[in-house]
Write a protein that binds this DNA or RNA. Structure first.
Ligand code: NAD
Ligand code: NAD
Lengths: 228, 228
DNA sequence: TTCATTTTGTTCTCGCGTTCACAAACTCCT
DNA sequence: AGGAGTTTGTGAACGCGAGAACAAAATGAA
């Protein structure tokens, strides 16, 4: 998915690198908050939890923003990464499905501080309408098209039950949204040109469970036949 | 991370495959709910949103559970994957940090239905203590060791602010937890043998923003110099 | 039984991502 | 100025994962 022809743009940043840029950005913000003016690739890599060679290669895709023998200027690199990601200005975002999770998302302050502004909260259930969550009113889902057009929204968040996710996605795509963050545990079908990212809590836990099971199996094997 | 010697266990399942098994499991549950008794790799792959060759290769790591010319028995394969992941019985889980997100997680029914049981909700703030969320009482964080020992908990979820995440992780590791799901936007340092998975909302949105920015840049380039 | 059809399990190839290792470039000290 | 020390940027090797392609195995018809 998300395949675009490679000749279209001059600098094609690998997807794996794109996924790490936000981590570097966050580490740089922390360093800046601590008043640290410069850092080496080694220091930044440690703060970001990656290998320093990988960090340098990642940054090299953006350009040569470091100084050999010195390191990187924290503020300068921070700006360059923010610019590359595209979070120097706020992106308007709509959240659909204001239940348990939707409320938490709406209340989440990390949105605003990291380049996003929640412009609308939408829900199909009339019982939710009118409630103010973190200063934003919950509105009928049917106002989606109107709101997206007015605020030029490109990013939508789905926090509805899985059964509703595909139809919500279809409506989003229909009114011009081209990036979707999906919290519902369902596979979304979208046209080319629309990006979908999935956050799936149960999936993460099940991956942990797999490794956990193997740990205890190994332990049992080493101990005895596994009478535990 | 999570590197174990390869000779330790007979069948070493690639990490990329492990990450997809829960997706297949979910698709199989849906098929079973719809009363479908068997399916081909093609049908299951479509339901899971992957390539059918990839699906067959993934399943081949578990064993030969299909029948050539016929396909897979939905219930049988479902059980085999659940067994491989280790979710045929429920795993006890503790959640630390019962704020906005912690409440949503505690209320999430998908936990229980997918192999996990929330046995404790812990928070450092006394104002939260005593509240019942989804039938479980919020207790002082200091009871962590006691609870983990009593229920033999191996999996912990961190939903505290980033500043507290490392110290919570240290306490978890100290009392025997070996798998951590971290929702705080911070890099956790843990000893070998402890698995950490991170769910980072802002990171996902920033990845979407990067692609979104490129889409509009390309559009502007094709249109004119980019006066928008 | 034998053959055509279907679908799995596996081999092979290709491309991407990770990591090592080192030359280039910069600072600082003498 | 020149050399020692430091750190970046990148070429090259390596390993893993994705996908195409095909052989093996099962079913059903003749
Ligand atoms: N709660 C969690 O911690 C959690 C964790 C992981 C995943 N999820 C997933 O996130 C989703 C939401 O979970 P939740 O716990 O908030 O559920 P919820 O039932 O509390 O909330 C869902 C909300 O979506 C609204 N809705 C339903 N259909 C809609 C539609 N067609 N259009 C617009 N709104 C609609 C409902 O009115 C409700 O307010 C689910 O898919 C769930 O599996 C939740
Ligand atoms: N709310 C969201 O939708 C959301 C989304 C993505 C990420 N996050 C992240 O999840 C974390 C929690 O977010 P939130 O919105 O629920 O925050 P919150 O402030 O509402 O809740 C945090 C809770 O953690 C408790 N806490 C603080 N220090 C603690 C400690 N040392 N031990 C135990 N408990 C402690 C607090 O008492 C509070 O109840 C944050 O790191 C946030 O960045 C939240």
């Amino acid at each position: 998915m998300t395949a675009r022809t490679s000749s279209e743009n001059a600098r094609e940043i690998p997807e794996a690198t794109v996924a790490r840029l936000p981590v570097y950005l966050r580490a740089l913000v922390t360093l800046a908050d601590d008043g640290i003016p410069t850092c080496s690739s080694e220091e930044l890599a440690t703060a970001a939890g990656v290998n320093s060679a990988k960090l340098r290669k990642d940054l090299s895709y953006l350009g040569s923003y470091g100084t050999r023998g010195v390191g990187y200027d924290v503020d300068y690199l921070r700006y360059q990464i923010a610019r590359e990601i595209g979070v120097t200005k706020d992106w308007p975002v709509v959240i659909v499905g204001i239940g348990n999770l939707g409320h938490a998302l709406a209340n989440y302050s990390g949105f605003r501080s990291r380049g996003f502004q929640v412009v609308a909260l939408l829900d199909a259930d009339p019982a939710q309408h009118g409630e103010i969550v973190a200063g934003v009113e919950v509105q009928p889902f049917d106002r989606l098209e109107e709101i997206v057009a007015a605020a030029d929204v490109a990013i939508g968040v789905i926090a509805t039950p899985a059964a509703a996710a595909q139809s919500v996605a279809d409506r989003m795509v229909g009114c011009g949204i081209t990036s979707i963050l999906n919290f519902a545990p369902s596979v979304l079908a979208v046209p080319d040109g629309v990006d979908v990212r999935k956050v799936d809590l149960s999936l993460e836990l099940q991956i942990l469970a797999y490794h956990e099971q193997r740990k205890s199996q190994t332990g049992a094997l080493l101990a005895d036949g596994g009478a535990a």
